[in-house]
Nucleic acid binder design. Structure first.
Length: 1175
RNA sequence: GCAGGAAUGGCGAAAUGGUAAACGCACUCGAUUUAGAAUCGAGAGACUGGGAGUUCGAAUCUCUCUUCCUGUACCA
């Protein structure tokens, strides 16, 4: 009787599929249990051994729960919209639906072969129109909702409109855009429909807004913050730039507080909760307004007040004469334009030939910082190029628009319209002054602080260099320095700033703010340690309580007042909030952090210069993607305003396009669709060319939804049976029965994406009464990743090093690829010189160069004029001479596919070595065909390193082979046996024979039942049999409940070893044992269960009941320790009292031997555990 | 920098404050076998990263240092 795992596994997989063994019921007397795996994306590479880890764990749990009498929902499906299929479509022209379908087939085959107990009747795919109909429906609900902070939940937008109708918006406490203007009910009712829509958009939970987004040109799409890793795209590693675009956004920030609070109600790991907490980034504190003092008020500390129109720089005294001269002699175009601009003809004041910094601009509106330039004459006195000057001016927040002489003279009307448009987009400086209550200049700086208690410790303020007030408050004296600083910091990339956090830099603006309580002047600095994007872009610096402020103050010799009682701040700031009293702080003296914070906020509120405030780091989520393969928005545009398609006309299905690329105009791929407009007459999609608002044909939205749209609610869809899915995303009964996911297993990489967004959507659906739970996943476990061992080959690259123009440049030399066998002295990314290697390269170039060498040079060095123009005029000899000593080298490491490595052993013991099979590697890529391989000892070695298992790293191990060789049960057991579920572990098949051997041994225990060698008489279990069984039941049950699957595999091994030694043939032992094993190794369990004579599947057989009585012992082999060290053991009855044990132990020979006549000081007796003798 | 986690044989790992190293791989020897594989049996091997403390007793609790991993990035 051999254990034919392949046949057995096939047999039971077919049986389960045919009998729908794991189909969940929506009507059951059993308690419910919902086990879910994180939604897989069906990639073209199929499953590798890392993927099933979590699936096996959840499957064990699901099967265990069935044995425990639960009605288990354990579904699976596919997050089938996504980038890879689209990238593939762009490359090959294959429709993403086709490749996705093929990928799903592979996935399904592989999943089936591992024997998962999924209820496939409930499968969902996000790319199915019957599914995304409801994704679109949820989007519409979000659009039709606003967030009311008073009731603290989302409400239908109609309730907001009603309130606008009767009271305007001044009393509304809503999550909304920042730029809301107050209006009364009368004003609201007078607004046009379009205007009303525009305003409502600022309140809706999903809204259109111009946002700065992470644009990835290579992928042609926008990426979310969490899709960017180290400044490049997570998928593909392409560069990402900031770009302004009109996008759909989700007002997730409205839910920041509830997303944070909700974490306390769910059973997730602390690590995961911490990640979400950090991402939400709540800080409680106060917003404080500091009045900006005019320099004259600062009593000699500032400089004389400069009139607002004097915007010239330090050279004004020289330039002003030229400006006057130019005003007197305008060109025709300038004169014509000036006639139209002067005297506030456009509603704003323009000045002509005006000094801005060191420039003279043609026309400027200072209030709106708009400069109008008329080109066409030579500015002989002006050396800088116009472009550079524009950049400098725009750094100062001026907007520069240019016109040509001909434009002004030929069509002055359109020039004026353009100027008016530009003016309309500019904010007025004066309008800000109206809002403020500053004493003199009328400006205020608002800051956010988490430490309002330290307000008396403020000795300066720091603004981000990008802060809008900087250019306005900077005094003439400081102007040059401030401008230089802004320019310098603008050049520093984000990465530079990050890498270099130690350098302290900043500049004084020359202006002072007024302390709200002491009225002392506080110098205002700018510094790039303050981020424009967080809070208000300004901080009140408290150097004694904040290390960065402290460092800044030390560096620039700014006073550091100490406001903490009895704290030494001579070396560093005191940043703790605990155990300290405030001092030198007027009315806050003697208070602790909490009391002082409260009192300071009260005082600020009293004088109207601040209030308690909570800040969140969480930003609204961009929801648009410029992609084809995603859910279309159910949106068309009327008067530029988005309109929702009525839900009864959903789904709005994805149209066909001939190509999956953006259009020539840069529109998303849907812009290519011929049939992509909305006909409001028939409520259906119509030909794009028909668009005409008067006839009711409107353009449809061209963006599609991001990947997280479909995955934010799929767990509800599983609750509904296929047949009822038409009427709702899930019926009320189904939602009520299944509630939410009891156990969710997946990787921690989804911590800030999927897991946060789904919580947001669920809370929203809950608010609007569509679901009855406000958290999707009650318990969540992160499985660790299985790592692969990659192989790296080292490629030697050659460069020409040229110096000049103050820069060093390395020009790559394009010779055939050269690979070197790995040795530990090879370093990646470091350039070095080597004369013999250089000679080789020079010889090669010499040989390559023909007499007319221009084209060849381009072939070798690339078409870069910096080097080609340099070398081309030289003769061949001169070129070689010139290049001498200028060649440098560098190593680059590349992934080789591990299948190109030599193997040792065969069959089950096959192992990859470090050695590369050069011929296979050469044939892998056409560009390696002629590559040179430098071996050592006739071997070409790779560097093996453990990293994430991934197709792109060519280190994947496919589970198919394991299944074929050892069977799915062995794979399942082995993956669990590798170690704790959450741990990261490299894949190594070395131990798989161990678990496979265990299964064979298990099988052997049952052979007597199969080969007829067992007599018909039932064998009664022995005491030992029962002890082994019940010990195992207890341990396995505990282990599964604790998700400690590795230890239960050991427990099975121990049980089988013991039962084999006991020669157990009792059905009363072997039957329950199968049920214990069944969640882990279901195929063998089913087969043996059947062999024991059962007709029904083992899957719902009751889990054996643990009975303590079989483990009860009458005696215990007590470890006897002396001073905590165990010396020997002594068998004593368990019913002995403490005193009796002590007596018995002390009377024992060995005890006396150990004591050697000493009297023990103390004897510790823990009955049933241990005896410890001290002395 | 901050937050979280980890460190036990050659390897993966186990151990409610109570006999440290279970279980598996690899290794050695023996049996069976023409040989190998498979199977069976036997065996060798780590005193828990370093230091201190609490305790009758510490892998486990506290402090500290070292190394590694993960997350996050000047968050006011």
């Amino acid at each position: 009787m051999k254990y034919n795992f392949n046949d057995i596994e096939k047999k039971w997989q077919d049986y389960w599929a045919k009998n729908e063994t794991f189909k969940a019921s929506n009507n059951s007397d059993k308690p419910k249990y919902y086990v879910l795996d994180m939604f897989p994306y069906p990639s073209g590479a199929g499953l590798h051994v890392g993927h099933p880890l979590g699936y096996i764990a959840s499957d064990i749990y699901a099967r265990y729960k069935r044995h425990k009498g639960f009605n288990v929902l354990h579904p699976q499906g596919y997050d089938s919209f996504g980038l890879p299929a689209e990238q593939y479509a762009i490359q090959t022209g294959q429709h993403p639906a086709v490749t996705t379908e093929a990928n799903i087939k592979t996935y399904r085959r592989q999943l089936d072969q591992i024997g998962f107990s999924f209820d496939w009747s409930r499968e969902v795919r996000t790319s199915n129109p019957e599914y995304y109909k409801w994704t679109q429906w949820i989007f519409i609900q979000l659009f039709e909702s606003w967030y009311n902070y008073d009731s603290n939940k989302a409400e239908p937008i109609d309730t907001l409109i009603e309130r606008f109708n009767v009271e305007g918006n001044t009393n509304i406490n809503a999550a909304c855009d920042d730029d809301i203007n107050p209006f009364t009910a009368e004003e609201w009712n007078a607004f046009s429909d379009t205007e009303k829509q525009r305003i409502l958009l600022k309140y809706r939970l999903t809204y259109l807004a111009e946002t700065e987004v992470n644009w990835c040109p290579a992928l042609g799409t926008v990426l979310a913050n969490d899709e960017i890793v180290n400044g490049v795209s997570e998928r593909g590693g392409h560069p990402v730039i900031r770009k302004k675009m009109t996008q759909w956004s989700m007002r997730i920030s409205a839910y920041a507080e509830r997303l944070l609070q909700g974490l306390d109600t769910i059973d997730w790991t602390d690590a995961l909760k911490d990640i979400q907490k950090n991402w939400i980034g709540k800080s409680v504190g106060a917003s404080v307004k500091f009045k900006v003092l005019s320099p004259t008020l600062s009593e000699g500390k500032g400089v004389d007040k400069v009139p607002g129109y004097m915007t010239g720089g330090n050279n004004s005294h020289l330039l002003i004469e030229r400006a006057k001269e130019m005003r007197a002699n305008p060109t025709d175009a300038e004169a014509a334009l000036w006639a139209q601009l002067k005297g506030k003809k456009l509603g704003v004041k323009f000045r002509q030939q005006h000094l801005i910094g060191d420039y003279i601009v043609d026309f400027v509106c200072l209030d709106k910082k708009l400069i109008v330039e008329v080109d066409g004459k030579i500015h002989d006195y002006q050396i800088e190029a116009d472009e550079e000057r524009t950049v400098r001016l725009e750094n100062d927040y001026y907007k520069v628009i240019r016109f040509k002489n001909e434009e002004v003279l030929g069509d002055i009307d359109s020039v004026l319209i353009k100027i008016e448009e530009a003016l309309a987009q500019r904010e007025s400086i004066n309008s800000k002054q109206v809002l403020s209550s500053g004493k003199d200049l009328g400006w205020e700086i608002e800051v956010f602080t988490t430490r309002p208690d330290t307000i008396f410790g403020v000795s300066f303020m720091t603004l981000a260099p990008e802060h809008e007030l900087v250019s306005q408050i900077t005094t003439a004296e400081q102007k040059a320095e401030v401008e230089a600083y802004i320019e310098a910091t603008a050049k520093r990339s984000e990465r530079d700033r990050m890498a270099d956090v130690k350098t302290i830099s900043g500049v004084f603006t020359g202006t002072y703010a007024e302390h709200p309580f002491t009225k002392e002047p506080i110098p205002i600095w700018i510094g790039d340690y303050v981020l424009a994007s967080y809070g208000t872009g300004a901080v009140m610096a408290v150097p004694c309580g904040d290390q960065r402020d402290y460092d800044f103050a030390k560096h620039f010799n700014i006073p550091i007042p100490n406001i903490f009682e009895g704290v030494d701040i001579s070396e560093e700031a005191f940043a703790s909030k605990d155990n300290v009293k405030i001092a030198n702080s007027d009315f806050l003296n003697g208070l602790n952090y909490k009391q002082a914070t409260k009192k300071a906020i009260e005082a600020l509120e009293k004088i109207g210069q601040g209030e308690g405030k909570t800040n969140y780091r969480l930003r609204d989520a961009v929801f648009s993607r410029q992609r084809y393969w995603g859910e279309p928005f159910p949106v068309y545009y009327k008067d530029g305003m988005p309109q929702m398609i009525d839900e009864k006309h959903l789904p709005l299905t994805l149209p066909e396009v001939e190509k999956y690329l953006p259009t020539e105009e840069g529109e998303p791929p849907l812009g290519r669709a011929d049939v992509w407009a909305w006909d409001t007459n028939t409520n259906s999609v119509c030909h794009s060319e028909l668009v005409s608002e008067s006839n009711g044909f409107y353009p449809l939205e061209l963006n599609t939804m991001p990947g997280w749209a479909g995955s934010s609610w799929y767990f509800f869809r599983y609750m509904e049976e296929q047949s009822n899915r038409g009427e709702a995303f899930a019926t009320e009964g189904a939602l009520k029965y299944w509630e939410n996911v009891d156990l969710y297993i997946g990787g921690s990489e989804h911590a800030t994406g999927h897991l946060l967004y789904s919580r947001f959507w669920v809370k929203f659906l809950y608010d609007r009464g569509f679901v009855g739970v406000d958290e999707p996943f009650k318990k969540l476990i992160n499985q660790g990743m299985i790592l692969g061992t990659s192989a790296f080959v080292y490629r030697r690259l050659s460069y020409v090093k040229l110096e000049g123009y103050g820069l060093t440049r390395w020009h790559p030399i394009k010779h055939k690829p050269i690979f070197e066998s790995y040795r530990d002295t090879l370093e990646v990314g470091v350039t070095f010189k080597d004369s013999s290697l250089e000679k080789e390269i020079l010889d090669w170039i010499k040989q390559e160069l023909p007499l007319l060498h221009h084209n060849k040079l381009i072939e070798i060095f690339g078409n870069d004029p910096l080097i080609i123009d340099l070398l081309n005029p030289m003769s061949n000899e001169e070129i070689i001479e010139f290049l001498n000593e200028k060649i440098e080298f560098q190593y680059q490491s590349l992934h080789a596919d591990i299948s190109h490595l030599k193997t040792i052993g065969e069959g089950s013991n096959i192992k990859y070595t470090d050695e590369l099979i050069v011929e296979e590697f050469k044939n892998w890529r056409p560009e390696y065909k002629n590559a040179e391989f430098i071996c050592s000892d006739n071997k070409f070695l790779t560097l093996r390193e453990v990293e994430k298992m991934s197709k792109s790293k060519f280190n994947v191990v496919n589970p198919d082979e394991i299944c074929e060789q050892y069977g799915a049960d062995s794979l399942r057991l082995y993956e669990m046996f590798l170690g704790p579920l959450e741990q990261y572990k490299p894949w190594n098949t070395a131990g798989i024979t161990g678990v496979h051997g265990f299964l064979k041994k298990l099988w052997k225990l049952y052979v007597p039942f199969m080969d007829g060698s067992l007599s018909e008489v039932e064998v009664e279990p022995t005491k030992d049999n029962l002890k082994t069984l019940h010990k195992t039941i207890k341990k396995v049950e505990e282990d599964i409940e604790n998700f400690s699957f590795n230890t239960s595999v050991s427990t099975f091994m121990i049980a089988v070893n013991e039962l084999t030694a006991q020669k157990c043939t009792s059905r009363h032992i072997l039957e329950p044992l199968l049920v214990l094993v069944s969640p882990y190794a279901p195929h063998i369990a089913e087969e043996l269960w059947e062999q024991l004579g059962h007709k029904a599947s083992i899957s719902t057989a009751p889990f054996p009941k643990f009975e303590e009585k079989y483990l009860v012992e009458s005696s215990k082999n007590y470890p006897i320790s002396f001073n905590g060290k165990m010396r020997f053991t002594l068998e004593l009855p368990l019913d002995m009292s403490k005193d009796e044990i002590e007596k018995a132990v002390l009377a024992y020979d060995k005890t006396q031997e150990q004591l050697q006549g000493r009297t023990p000081k103390k004897v510790i007796v823990v009955p049933g555990k241990i005896v410890n003798i001290v002395g």
